[in-house]
């Protein structure tokens, strides 16, 4: 097998004395979408921030096409083709939609930027209508679209998406995921997707990891994870009923018992 586009090896990360990542390893192959699931505080956001260089890891390696990128400045990581869409629709509120998109292409010096903008509007037509409007006046869903569109402007080899569904209406979540699926299928964008909405994430992903307490508790192809009983109960909300007819009410505390 060829080298995965992104490899994370034994990543350890601290917030002061608190260990947020306890030796996480994962692979994202070229052209695939990999989902990382997990509850609040599992370390999902920390994982993405460390990969994109916003936080420095204590230990471990991050390799982009085999080249180590852990601990280097975020702007150099973006230049090498990895773009992070942070959680919570982080747009530049007082800049116009157009200027936000220009900032997405900040690291690029080639002439293809306006071409890419046209392609981006094909996916997010609403942004074309809002071109001159300050990004802070967009609705939540539009801001999330802008954040993804802005990242695409960097023409990334891999995109990290942190909770794109956070705080959006169910309809908007469906729309966003439909766009993510199109990006994957039509443009072959490689994605590392962090989500609490496991149903949506596993539908679009090829492979999944479950992160718990800063460790990978479970991994496997998305299809298999979807059928996994624990995932079904704890992340997909399915009720499991035991042969005796009573519901399992005492949850397993962790995945590694």
């Amino acid at each position: 097998m060829s080298v995965p586009l992104l490899e994370v090896r034994n990543l350890e990360c601290f917030y002061g004395p608190v260990m947020a990542l306890r030796g996480v390893s994962l692979d994202v192959p070229e052209g695939k979408t990999v989902a990382v699931l997990g509850g609040n505080g599992a370390g999902k956001t920390t994982l993405l921030r460390t990969v994109s260089g916003i936080m420095d890891p204590e230990k471990g390696e991050v390799l982009l096409s085999g080249v180590p990128i852990a601990g280097i400045e975020p702007d150099r990581i973006v230049r090498s083709g990895l773009v992070h869409v942070p959680e919570g629709r982080e747009v530049f509120p007082l800049l116009s939609v157009e200027e936000n998109l220009e900032m997405g292409a900040y690291t690029r010096r080639d002439g293809g930027v306006s071409e890419d903008a046209a392609a981006v509007f094909d996916y997010f037509p609403v942004l074309r209508e809002r071109l001159r409007q300050p990004a802070g006046t967009l609705s939540g869903g539009e801001q999330q679209m802008l954040a993804i569109a802005r990242a695409l402007m960097a023409r990334p080899r891999i995109m990290l998406l942190d909770e794109p569904s956070l705080g959006l209406s169910p309809v908007m979540v469906r729309d966003i995921f439909a766009i993510i699926r199109r990006l994957k299928e039509e443009r072959g964008v490689t994605m590392l997707l962090v989500e609490q909405n496991a149903t949506m994430a596993l539908d679009v992903a090829d492979f999944g990891y479950v992160l718990e307490n800063g460790q990978i508790a479970l991994d496997g192809p998305a299809e298999r994870l979807k059928r996994n009983a624990d995932i079904r109960e704890f992340y997909l909300g399915a009720r499991t009923v035991s042969p005796r007819g009573d519901r399992r009410w005492k949850r397993r505390k962790t995945w590694r018992s």
Partner: peptide, 23 residues
């Protein structure tokens, strides 16, 4: 471009880092 990037990084530092603006 630099001027807009200066505005951008003062409005949202996290997003500026993520977009590769050398904050």
């Amino acid at each position: 471009r630099l001027g807009v990037a200066m505005q951008a990084s003062s409005q949202n530092q996290l997003a500026a880092y993520c977009m590769g603006i050398p904050v």
